[in-house]
């Protein structure tokens, strides 16, 4: 059976999700921040984490965005193969949702149209849209506005197979070390291993939308996540990079098959304002 969904419904949902994501963190992030404040032993680090918790409270209560960098809107849509969109162009409906969310929601317009000419588009469009076709008749939408303080400190490396897991660990460590205070720790570290050049980057981005606290399914990847989280938290970088025990809230690693000749690794850093809202319609 074909299920019809009007594209105006997509516009409405995306508008609301842009506003929601920028004022309220998801439950997993709120819990992770709370645990971080309890865990931190450095007095300045603890004070900063306390301020960040207070910041979240003010943002929600007074409808002030958690961070002034309300991001570039990254949107994932998993579209059931039995869905038929009606009433217009799906891509345009997504852009309209972002446009309305950012203008009606008092969110900052941080997008320039041409990367070299750099004129602000004044409505935060275009979004970065990733669609995939899945079985079923539902549409799962994830809106993940991404700030660029942390995006700028992310990287992708094409390792050789011989470098193996030690090479992967080095890339994660180097990325976090080099970012230091710039990426607004405590971080969520999204890692993509495998695939091709672009697939690794996408895996890393998707890893950031995995709820903090939800571990990888494969045992060896789960233990790599745990090992790297512990290591990163011994770096001394700490909250806001001013020293302490909580440099990252999570290391989320997603993997995919790759070529016999390659071992791509992408590390996508996200600040403590790791925004992701998911709705299924």
């Amino acid at each position: 059976m074909i299920r019809e969904i009007g594209v105006d419904e997509i516009t409405r949902q995306i508008r609301d999700m842009c506003i929601q994501a920028n004022h309220y963190l998801s439950e997993d992030m709120v819990c992770a921040m709370k645990e971080a404040t309890e865990k931190e032993q450095d007095p300045l680090g603890k004070k900063i984490l306390g301020q960040l918790e207070e910041n979240l409270k003010i943002a929600g209560e007074e409808m002030i965005p958690i961070c002034q960098d309300t991001g570039m809107a990254v949107i994932f849509m998993e579209i059931g193969q039995d869905v038929h969109f009606t009433g217009g162009d799906l891509g345009q409906a997504v852009e309209e949702g972002v446009r309305r969310g950012y203008t009606e929601g008092y969110l900052r317009k941080s997008v320039v149209g041409d990367p070299l000419v750099r004129e602000n588009t004044k409505d935060n469009t275009p979004a970065v849209l990733h669609t995939s076709i899945v079985p079923g008749d539902q549409v799962a939408i994830t809106v993940a506005p991404k700030g660029f303080g942390s995006e700028n400190m992310s990287r992708i490396v094409m390792l050789k197979p011989a470098q193996g897991v030690e090479g992967v660990k080095q890339v994660i460590w180097d990325t976090v070390q080099e970012a230091g205070p710039n990426a607004c720790p405590p971080l969520v570290v999204g890692v993509g291993i495998g695939g091709t050049f672009e697939k690794a980057a996408l895996l890393a981005k998707q890893a950031l939308t995995r709820p903090v606290g939800e571990k990888a399914k494969d045992a060896h990847i789960r233990s790599l996540e745990e090992e790297m989280l512990e290591k990163v938290n011994r770096s001394g970088i700490g909250p806001a990079g001013l020293g302490g025990h909580v440099t990252a809230l999570a290391v989320n690693i997603n993997t995919y098959a790759t070529h016999i000749a390659g071992l791509p690794v992408a590390v996508n850093l996200c600040c403590h304002v790791n925004r992701h809202v998911k709705r299924v319609i």
Binding site: Q68, P181, A240
Partner: peptide
């Protein structure tokens, strides 16, 4: 000086 990154709502006050 550094202000705390990502505390924009708090700092706005």
């Amino acid at each position: 000086f550094a202000a705390v990154g990502g505390a924009g709502a708090l700092l706005s006050r």
